[in-house]
Simulated assay, not measured.
Amino acid sequence: MQNRASRTAEQVALFRALETARGHDRVFDDPLAVRFLHGGYRLLARAARVRPVGLRLSRFIDRRWPGPRPSAVARTRLIDDLVIEALGRGARQVLLLGAGYDSRAYRLPGIARVAVYEADHPATQAVKRRLVRGAVRPERRRHVRYVPVDLLTEDLGDALFAAGFGALEPTVVVWEGVTNYLSEPAVDATLRRLASLTATGSSLIFTYVDRRVLDGEVDAGSWAEAVRRQGEPWTFGFDPAALPGYLAARGMRLALDLSTRDAAERYLQPLGRIEDAAPFYRVAEAEIQ
């Protein structure tokens, strides 16, 4: 994607740190998120440990940039649950594709029993590896293998095999926050490669932007403009109605497709938290056929 650590990856880490700081009504606990932050972001996350400060900060973010924070919170919990379910069904390895500052390898129950492969752009991964070394004891990261790869220019399979990835093993793949920054050929090639690399019944969990946002038919408000100004504009999206057929042509069956607003209704509203997550940002799960 780029030759520097992703700014949006750090912002998602901030949202996860703010959620963790909420305490009793948080929907997940990500104690490493704050360690991935720098400068002002880290100061904000630490200040948010004082509950009134954290609540005011979240409200300010939501007024200034409606949608991204609750969407990140809801999708994080949904993907957590989907990964745990896949491990319960017998997945023997986990691939975090475009891992960013994802800390699932260290915080999800039972995940240390399987091999976890983190594949990401070398620039973002170099920053993360340094931070993880300072925050996670060696015995808690022995099951994690790092795989530096640029999906725009390199073959995913070659990079994974060099790191010891098991071909045709039951696998759960998480591809979060990535497809909307790639080209259509890169997304197509990656999906086909994943289908050829993993066993029948493996799970692919991924996020995407509704194609109508890129076509101008749906207004994404300040969210799309903010990522564009940061040099990380959205370049790809799926049409939700066409997604089942698209995946079927690539050897996959669509098992789940929810907007982050749907996920917020599932996880936030039962806690009395009515937060406006985005309807155009979605989480899907596909089964390898």
Rank of each mutant, 00 (worst) to 15 (best):
E225M: 07
F165P: 02
L214P: 07
G201I: 10
D25K: 04
G23H: 04
G221Q: 09
H121R: 02
W65N: 13
L32N: 07
D80Q: 06
E265W: 08
G23R: 00
T153G: 02
L44H: 05
A33L: 09
G164E: 06
L160K: 05
V53W: 02
P185A: 05
A126K: 10
T200Q: 12
P233L: 12
L57D: 04
L194Y: 01
L258D: 00
T124R: 00
V116Q: 00
G237P: 06
T190G: 10
L247F: 08
R282G: 05
P66T: 11
I84A: 13
V174R: 00
R64E: 14
R107H: 09
A163G: 03
V172A: 07
T235L: 05
T198I: 13
L168F: 09
E265N: 13
P185M: 01
L197S: 15
M252Q: 12
A48R: 03
N3Y: 06
L55C: 05
N3I: 07
W223F: 15
F238D: 00
T207L: 01
D155R: 11
E287Y: 03
F165N: 00
N180K: 01
L95R: 09
D25G: 04
R56M: 12
A199C: 12
A195H: 11
F15H: 12
A242V: 01
V174E: 00
L108V: 12
G39H: 08
A220P: 00
I274T: 15
A226G: 10
A33W: 01
L82S: 14
A263M: 06
P109D: 08
H143T: 09
L95F: 13
A126W: 04
A226S: 14
R145E: 10
L57M: 11
G221D: 08
G134E: 13
D257M: 08
V94P: 04
H38D: 15
E287I: 15
R4W: 07
L82N: 10
L247T: 08
S58V: 14
E232I: 13
S203K: 08
Y101V: 08
L156P: 06
Q289E: 14
V173S: 07
I79Y: 01
